[in-house]
Design a protein around this nucleic acid. Sequence first.
DNA 1: TCGATGTCATTGCTGTTGCAACGACATTAA
DNA 2: TTAATGTCGTTGCAACAGCAATGACATCGA
Lengths: 141, 141
Amino acid sequence: MSFDLESFLPYRLNVAATRISRRFAALYEAEAGLTVPEWRVLAHLDRSGAVSVRDIHARVHLDKSMVSRAASRLEQAGLVQKSGHDRDRRLVALELTGQGRALMHRLSQIATGFQADLIAELGPEAGALDRALTRLSGGKD
Amino acid sequence: MSFDLESFLPYRLNVAATRISRRFAALYEAEAGLTVPEWRVLAHLDRSGAVSVRDIHARVHLDKSMVSRAASRLEQAGLVQKSGHDRDRRLVALELTGQGRALMHRLSQIATGFQADLIAELGPEAGALDRALTRLSGGKD
DNA sequence: TCGATGTCATTGCTGTTGCAACGACATTAA
DNA sequence: TTAATGTCGTTGCAACAGCAATGACATCGA
C-alpha cells in the first residue's frame, strides 16, 4: 500500500497552521505593518511587563536572535522601550511604551475577533482541538 | 484585560505544528538526508505516478520553485526520474525510480509509525483533531 | 499561417530563519 | 584578587522561502 500524504497528520497540521497563521498575519500586517516575531514579542510584553530577551525567547518559541531583532525594530517604531537591568547589566529590560500598549489594545481586539471566527468555523470540534493542542505541547522536547 | 498569547489558537496551532514537524523531519533527515520539500515531493510521487511540477505544486502546498529545486536534488540523488511529456513539451514528467520507491517504502513505515505514536499521544482527542483539521482546510483561500 | 495571450518549469533575487560565534558581564572556586 | 566557567544579547552567516521575471512552448482567434 502506498503512503497517503493527504491524510498524514503532521502534514495536515502544518498546512492548517500556516494557512490560518497567514490569514491572521495579513490582519496585523495591515493594521500595523508587523511581522510574526514582532507580533509575538508585542503580545508577550503586553502581559509580562518588563522582561528580558531570554525570557521572551523561552516563552514564545522564537530564537533569541529573532527576539533581539524584533525588539530593535519595535524600539525604532516607538512601540517598545529597551533599558538595562539594574543588577545584571547583561540583561535588557523590554517593555511596551504607551504607543505600544495602545496598539496592542487594538490588536488584541482584532485577535480576539479572529479567534472567535475561527472557533465558529470549527463548530463543535473547537474544544477538542484545544485539548489536542494542549496535549501536543505537553511532552518532552 | 490584557491579551493572552498562550491561549491564542493560531499561535498554539503554529507552535504545535512546527514542533511535531521538526520531530518528524529529524527522522527522515536521519534516514535519507531529506529536507521538507523533498520529503513532500517524494511522498506525493509515491501515490501519483508520473506527474508535472505544477501538479505537485497544487496538491502539496509548495511553491513551484521549491518543487522544481527539490525535484532536481532528488534527481541528482537518483530517487526521481525527470522526463519530458510527450504531447506538451513544457511539462515535465516526474516519477520515482526503483531506488526512490524503495526509500519511500522505508519512509512510509517510519511515517506511519510516527503517526501512530502521535495518535497514541493524543488519546481520545485524535479523532476530533482530525475533523478539526479537515474543517480548517475546507474554506475559501 | 501568424500574432496574441496564456501556461509551464526554471532561475534570480530579497527578506527571513535558525545556528554558531562573539564580546560583555556575572558567578563561582581557589 | 584572579581564573574558570557560564549566561546574556547581538551579530555574521548560510540555508531557505516566496515572489517576480524569463524563456520555451501551447493554444486560440483572425
